[in-house]
């Protein structure tokens, strides 16, 4: 990314943050948001400074730059990316954006249609639908991102090790993953969630266990391609250990498929989490969750249709924009491997 873009982004970040953070609260949620925004701002600033200093050092030719340019030319992908960034900001700043306490119950106004006080009406416990949807986005995005990160780490590790060592290690890992893949995932998730209880950590764990094989296969293929290349051989001759070769010399060459797959995977994960919520196994109430809001909302279509529409649309937009962005990335990297 160019230094100028980074500077602009930093400025926008500060502007957004300052404009909403005025209504500072004292809760844990506020503190987390505040900390995360400040950290993000700092990172942006430092990167911008670093980029400015090293400006013009042949960056133009880098793969990253080429990908970025291709991505920019793809309008759908840009739209997806912008929406993803906007959603991430909403998630990050949700305690400041939500007009009301998402947990505050009001028995006098159960499942009311929209009013001035509640723009999208209230839910089955008289809570503000908009505020819950904003918080629900925060939760679902953080859970999915976390789950996808765990999933990527597992998949990459298996793929790297299998591809690098080959032989029986490869056979054992790939056979194991094939068996793992043969377990119908949704049933596995249901069994685990029904039995282990439905805490957030359990949810992350369970969701992150699906589809490890596709990524591992992909990474393994990549590794097989470069395992015998000169720079790897050189490193080995110099006595560099296996783990270090994998992490320092091979891993960087597998970043493209990892980035693409994880972006696409986030949308899928959000849908999986909603599906589990529908079966009563997702994020536990009273914590707001888009999937649970949607499945409750569809029982109240005639009282307050927004109870279903708002979380439904929120899920739709989030999944859609992650998918558009991911598709765009895939085209930009244009590696046949990642299809």
């Amino acid at each position: 990314m160019k230094a100028r873009t980074l500077w602009i982004w930093t400025a926008v970040h500060v502007a957004i943050t300052l404009s909403v953070i005025g209504s500072a609260g004292t809760s844990m949620d506020h503190a987390i948001s505040f900390g995360a925004t400040a950290a993000l701002g700092l990172i942006l600033l430092l990167t911008a400074v670093a980029r400015s200093r090293s400006a013009g050092s042949g960056e133009i030719k880098s793969l990253r730059y080429l990908v970025w340019r291709k991505l920019q030319a793809n309008r759908a992908a840009v739209a997806g990316m912008v929406t993803v960034v906007a959603l991430l900001y909403v998630a990050l700043l949700s305690p400041f954006l939500a007009p009301q306490d998402p947990l505050a119950i009001n028995w006098a106004a159960v499942a009311q249609p929209p009013t001035d006080a509640n723009v999208f009406g209230t839910d089955d416990l008289g809570r503000d639908v908009l505020s819950r949807a904003i918080f629900g986005l925060r939760i679902v995005i953080s859970v999915s991102v976390l789950a996808v990160v765990v999933n990527m780490i597992l998949g990459t590790a298996f793929g790297l090790v299998a591809g690098y060592y080959g032989g029986w290690v490869d056979t054992v890992i790939m056979r194991f993953l094939e068996m793992w893949n043969s377990i119908p995932f949704i049933l596995l998730a249901i069994a685990l969630m029904a039995a282990l209880g439905t805490g957030l950590l359990n949810l992350v764990l369970v969701v992150s266990l699906s589809g490890i094989m596709q990524l591992a296969r992909l990474i393994r293929g990549q590794v097989l391609g470069i395992r015998r290349s000169q720079f790897v051989d050189a490193a080995r001759v110099m006595g560099v250990g296996g783990p270090r070769i994998m992490l320092q010399h091979i891993l960087p060459h597998t970043i493209a498929p990892i980035v693409v797959m994880s972006t696409l995977k986030i949308g899928e994960t959000i849908l999986t989490i909603s599906g589990l919520s529908f079966l009563g196994l997702g994020i536990q109430p009273p914590t707001p969750s888009l999937g649970a809001m949607l499945s409750t909302g569809q029982q109240f279509l005639y009282q307050n249709v927004m109870m279903a529409v708002v979380p439904g649309v929120m899920i739709l937009i989030t999944v859609l924009s992650f998918n558009l962005f991911g598709d765009g990335l895939r085209d930009a990297f244009d590696s046949r491997l990642t299809r």
């Binding site: 505050a104 119950i105 089955d124 109430p285 009273p286 409750t296």
Partner: peptide
Amino acid sequence: AARSRVAQAVAT
């Protein structure tokens, strides 16, 4: 759902 709502109300 109903009993979960009771528990949610108490927790809140």
